[in-house]
């Protein structure tokens, strides 16, 4: 009897708790992905003086469900000369990687699945793995267009990861911890304490543009350049395998927005530290900030034409990399010169 109790308390209950936590994160993320696709079509529709989807359900609210069902009932086609195992593995890798990163994202004070010390390194590691899904898809499809799209995408993601790494380092220098909750708490005290409104503002811009490139969004959507590559690395995919790529890509967009909100916009903190603002709970502020950054993603897509490939590489390697490297040295020098180095006990 005691053994049963111990088993229950040591193994079954914690496992159930963690599985429940995972569901509490994954279900809202997938729902947001579904409604992000609707929001994208609606917002771009309004920007181009159209109506966007408005037929399925009130205001087109059931459109994502209709789209999902349609994809679900399509036939899964496997190209005859493809490498079957890797062909199936690629969308799974993309989808899983876009979800496991959410484990360390803090949604509110203490509201985090895994509050680990190396939180941002974990996020950085996961986002640097995103290349594999795309490379595997491009190679396993055994098709020229898919392969070209995969190569473009991989080169682009590897290039912009470098500047993202340096941007993260500048923030970490100012905070003195890799823990995401600590990074948010370091920005407490109102909107003027947020990193976006400090000398780190240029890094905010660099991070946002790099996030666009990292998620293969317009104006850097060369891997999917319809005019040249049909659709890039996912040409040969259909039905649910395609849907998993699609879900992974949009979940990555939301993840990048969450990272932006945590690094620069104060995470779950309200913009003002007085009455009507402090009544709203932290997770809602966090969701609002993510929605704001996502709106910027969509706005950029509706506004700018696609970059040429050599311009994209030049921006990454010759503009962002030196700028962010210089900002790392500037920040470190500033902190040392004015004796503002954060105490080491943080993490």
């Amino acid at each position: 009897m005691v053994d049963m109790m111990a088993l229950w308390e040591n193994y079954i209950w914690p496992t159930a708790w963690i599985v429940g936590g995972i569901l509490m994160i994954v279900v809202p993320v997938l729902l947001s992905v579904a409604y992000l696709t609707l929001a994208e079509r609606k917002v771009i529709g309004w920007m181009q003086l159209r109506k966007g989807p408005n037929v399925v359900g009130p205001f087109g609210l059931l459109q994502p469900i209709a789209d999902g069902l349609k994809l679900f009932f399509k036939e899964t086609i496997i190209p005859a000369s493809s490498n079957r195992v890797i062909f199936f593995l690629a969308p799974v890798v993309t989808f899983v990687l876009s979800l496991i990163a959410w484990a360390v994202i803090p949604f509110g004070p203490g509201l985090v699945l895994a509050d680990i010390n190396v939180g941002f390194l974990y996020l950085f590691a996961i986002s640097s793995l995103g290349v594999y899904g795309i490379l595997m898809a491009g190679w396993a499809s055994n098709s020229k267009y898919a392969f070209l799209g995969a190569l473009r995408s991989a080169a682009q993601m590897v290039s912009y990861e470098v500047s993202i790494g340096f941007v993260i380092i500048t923030v970490l220098l100012a905070v003195g911890s890799l823990n995401l909750s600590q990074i948010v708490l370091a920005q407490s005290g109102g909107i003027h304490h947020w990193h976006a409104f400090s000398p780190l503002l240029p890094m905010f811009v660099v991070f946002f543009v790099s996030a666009l490139a990292e998620t293969n969004r317009a104006p850097f959507d060369l891997p999917e350049a319809e005019a040249e590559l049909v659709s890039g690395y996912n040409v040969e995919y259909s039905s649910m395998t395609f849907a998993m790529f699609f879900l992974g890509e949009y979940a990555n967009m939301i993840l990048m927005s969450a990272m932006t909100a945590i690094l620069f916009l104060g995470g779950w903190l309200p913009p003002f530290e007085f009455a009507p603002f402090t009544w709203i709970p932290g997770p809602i502020w966090f969701a609002l900030k993510i929605a704001f950054v996502l709106f910027l993603f969509l706005w950029v897509r509706a506004t700018f034409p696609r970059y040429r490939y050599d311009q994209l590489m030049r921006l990454g390697w010759k503009v962002f990399l030196p700028l962010s490297l210089a900002w790392v040295i500037l920040t470190a020098g500033w902190l040392i010169a004015f004796d503002q180095v954060p105490p080491a006990g943080g993490a």
Binding site: L121, F124, L135, L151
Partner: peptide, 25 residues
């Protein structure tokens, strides 16, 4: 050694192995 683990993933999996894969493909 969580820091070493993350660095292993970032450096070897995220950078070195991508180059390997590029070349081999």
């Amino acid at each position: 050694a969580e820091f070493l683990a993350m660095i292993l993933v970032v450096v070897y999996v995220g950078a070195v192995a991508v180059l390997f894969l590029f070349v081999v493909m």
